[in-house]
């Protein structure tokens, strides 16, 4: 049973100038533990696909099942809880909260889930696992390098022990050496922790890491 399945999923943005079809009848099944790349030209619908996989967005038509939940008919709170409990996002912009320290950023989703403080240990454990030194725990994200910030973001995505990681160009803002280190980290999480990874990238060298690559062209799987 696939952890994510798309059946005839379409996403249409109705615009005054005419409808934009971001996804066109996409069928995808992703098994637990897979490392999947999503590639395609700009505007081909990669981010749209990832957002729907992460229940940040809902399709215009078709059926999406995430971790056993059919998302049609779920309300906003249900989708939010689905994200909280099953999904970890990693973004190109890192999107760390500048006000919070490194360890607090990682603690944030834990607190959202447990609804109380006191998840410091788990946050530290995850930070160590992604290779952030303890001396950086109390720093503000702005005081870290890009690669370190992305590691913190990955730690945050992993904090609630999600079933899968959804990464939208996680190395897009990093130089190639740092990018490779991040890829190695994701690869390790995939192999050692058994996390399913779905990652959008423009970099053809990344295909080495992947079990398979989904290619999108104009919203269709090519």
């Amino acid at each position: 049973m696939p952890v994510i399945s798309f059946e005839h999923v379409s996403k249409v943005y109705p615009l005054p100038a005419g409808d934009v079809v971001a996804l066109d009848a996409v069928d995808i099944a992703i098994e637990a533990g897979e490392f999947i790349l999503v590639m395609g030209p700009s505007g081909s619908g990669k981010s749209t696909l990832l957002n729907i996989m992460g229940s940040l967005d809902v399709p215009t038509s078709g059926e999406v099942t995430i971790a056993g939940n059919r998302i049609s008919g779920m309300d906003d709170d249900d989708l939010t809880l689905l994200r909280r409990d099953h999904i970890g996002f990693v973004f190109q912009q890192f999107n760390l909260i500048p006000l919070l320290s490194v360890v607090e950023n990682v603690e944030y989703p834990l607190i959202l889930k447990a609804r109380q403080n006191g998840s410091r240990e788990r946050a530290e454990e995850v930070l160590e696992a992604v290779g952030i030194a303890e001396t950086h725990f109390s720093h503000k994200p702005g005081e870290l390098s890009g690669g370190q910030q992305q590691r913190v973001a990955i730690a945050r995505a992993l904090a609630n022990d999600p079933d899968f990681l959804l990464c939208d160009e996680p190395t897009g803002n990093l130089d190639s050496k740092t990018g490779t280190a991040i890829m190695d980290l994701l690869d390790r999480m995939n192999r050692e922790e058994g996390k399913t990874v779905v990652m959008v990238t423009h970099d053809p060298r990344m295909t080495d890491y992947a079990d398979r690559t989904i290619r999108l062209v104009d919203g269709r799987v090519a």
Binding site: G54, D76, T80, L81, I97, P109, L112, R156
Partner: peptide, 14 residues
């Protein structure tokens, strides 16, 4: 942006 992040990691509207 921070609000978007909060929502993506599981903060409800409320």
């Amino acid at each position: 942006g921070e609000i978007g992040l909060m929502r993506s990691i599981g903060a409800r509207r409320r």
